[in-house]
Amino acid sequence: MTLLEVEDAHTYYGESHILEGVSLEVEEGEVVALVGRNGVGKTTTLRTVLQLTPPRRGTVRLRGEDVTGRETHEIADRGVGWIPEERRIFAQLSVEENVRVAVPDGRAVGAALDRAFETFPDLRDHRSRDAGTLSGGQQQMLALARGLVGDNDLLLVDEPSEGLAPLIVERVAEALADAAEDTTLLLVEQNLPLALDLADRFYVIDNGSVVDEGDAAETSADDERLRRYLSA
């Protein structure tokens, strides 16, 4: 069954029209990348799915259910997790508290912590530190861990490699590849080779709408079709 469908979404920030009719689908178990230049609406597409900026026109469906206009926490309760741009970890909470707060009510917190710390052993060593004192790479690990323990079926991942050293990017990519084994991913990523490596399919977004789509395995990073939309 189609996990996520976005149909002709028009989203605004105040009066500026950001998404001008985005339509896309994500099937259960897929990894789908959104690629495109800065400011074309990739992040807004994720925010539209989460209803953080609900679309003025158009529909968002999760497993066929229309969730347009619902509260964001209700979207999260339906198994949608968000690993946002710039991580947005809670800087004044400890590392452990950052993970704890992401565990849904009624789920075993201990098991969730074990899972997070097994995936990212670095975090275990810093569990009682304020998360704001972590390095950028560690903060990204924490943001990923928060997404992993949320019992999510669909993770919306926004620019996970942004601002990280190449070695750390590799570890983030590994963690995402691991996560993709039992979770569906919708991924926004500027690093095109990384995006194509992780993804099964991709959508190209330009000026607020989907202008192309394709199969990641059949497309190389210097494909003419992609370069048209990605070179500045």
């Binding site: 509260e71 946002p84 947005r88 707060v101």
Partner: peptide
Amino acid sequence: RAGSEDAEMTEALGID
């Protein structure tokens, strides 16, 4: 405490 720091992110973690 999480909501004080970033209400939007907290909401996106499933908290009302």
